[in-house]
Write a protein that binds this DNA or RNA. Structure first.
Length: 299
DNA sequence: AATGGAATAT
DNA sequence: AATATTCCAT
């Protein structure tokens, strides 16, 4: 194996090269739909009509090389311990209109995210607590109405169950979660992790919010998140034992808050979220990506 | 058409 | 079990 006959191996190697048409389109094969979706990558080849290349100009995802724009860091140097911002971007939230044809990863409702959710619902009042509104209040980029609707459905079930258990009683309201958890092992999960606003438990009583929403629109729209991303953090600290693998974070383009009536806007934007993709080892389930959004300052 | 909500599906 | 999708009624 010395350099005896170099020219030889080389020509042989060359001969054995597969012809172009024997090759497989890498661009499409090596990237799973999920991944592509997560990165907002479109498939040029896949398009029925793959002729013109008018690639999405915008803010792609330089996921790996993440840089960011100096956000509108409000006056908060003090407790700016971890001010990640984030948004989820999957395949349609990043402001990248197109590329929505791909399937986005399953959202994982971390305790933090759920807390946000509960907060939003609480502040909206049961009446206004509908998916769209909740979604807006949460202002987690990438969160879809469907995501919220789905979660809400589950949450309502949970509440209902709780009412059943603590319903007649006298004052234990708050302890409901605990009680439920005790009496029903299957209940102890996520929902029990965030306090349920008392008024949620009364099917009967009307909700009254502790504060009043702002009616007219002032000039300044509160942008929830400016972009500030930084790959660090306290991930994988979910009570559930979930572990997040910081994969990429996106910059956020806060959605414009529509001026709906005096319904929402009770509070300022909560803190930013970070998007995370978890790579489920090819184990458990069939190799699916999981999307996880979570706040960094909510709790 | 755009939601919300329950029923299903994965 | 947790989420997503579908179906249906506003």
């Amino acid at each position: 194996m010395r350099e005896s006959e170099e020219g030889s191996w080389f020509s042989k190697w060359e001969e054995e090269l597969p012809s172009p048409d024997e090759l497989m389109p890498l661009t499409q094969t090596l990237i799973t739909p999920d991944l592509a979706a997560a990165f907002d990558i479109r498939n040029p080849l896949k398009s029925t009509n793959h002729s013109s290349l008018s690639p999405p100009p915008p803010p792609l995802n330089s996921a790996v090389s993440n840089h960011l724009q100096p956000p509108v860091l409000s006056p908060h140097p003090a407790s700016a311990e971890f001010s990640d911002s984030g948004e989820l971007g999957g395949a349609g939230g990043t402001g990248d209109e197109p590329a929505r044809t791909l399937k986005r990863p399953r959202l994982v409702w971390t305790p933090q995210l759920h807390k946000r959710f509960v907060d939003a619902v609480a502040h909206l009042g049961i009446k206004n607590a509908v998916p769209k509104t909740i979604m807006q209040l949460m202002s987690v980029d990438g969160l879809t109405r469907e995501n919220v609707a789905s979660h809400l459905q589950k949450y309502r079930l949970y509440l209902k169950r709780m009412q059943g258990l603590s319903g007649g009683g006298g004052g234990a309201g708050i302890g409901a979660a605990a009680a439920a958890a005790v009496s029903d092992p299957a209940t102890e999960h996520l929902f029990a992790s965030s306090p349920v606003p008392p008024h949620f438990l009364r099917p009967n009583s009307d909700h009254f919010l502790p504060f009043v929403p702002v009616p007219t629109h002032h000039h300044h729209q509160q942008m929830a998140s400016a972009a500030y991303h930084r790959p660090v953090a306290h991930f994988g600290s979910a009570p559930n034992g979930q572990f997040e693998n910081p994969f990429l974070s996106r910059q956020a383009a806060q959605q414009q808050v529509q001026r709906m009536g005096p319904q929402l806007h009770g509070h300022g934007p909560l803190q930013p979220y970070v998007e995370t993709l978890e790579t489920p080892a090819n184990n458990g389930n069939g190799g699916r990506k999981i999307l996880t959004l979570f706040p960094t300052g909510g709790d």
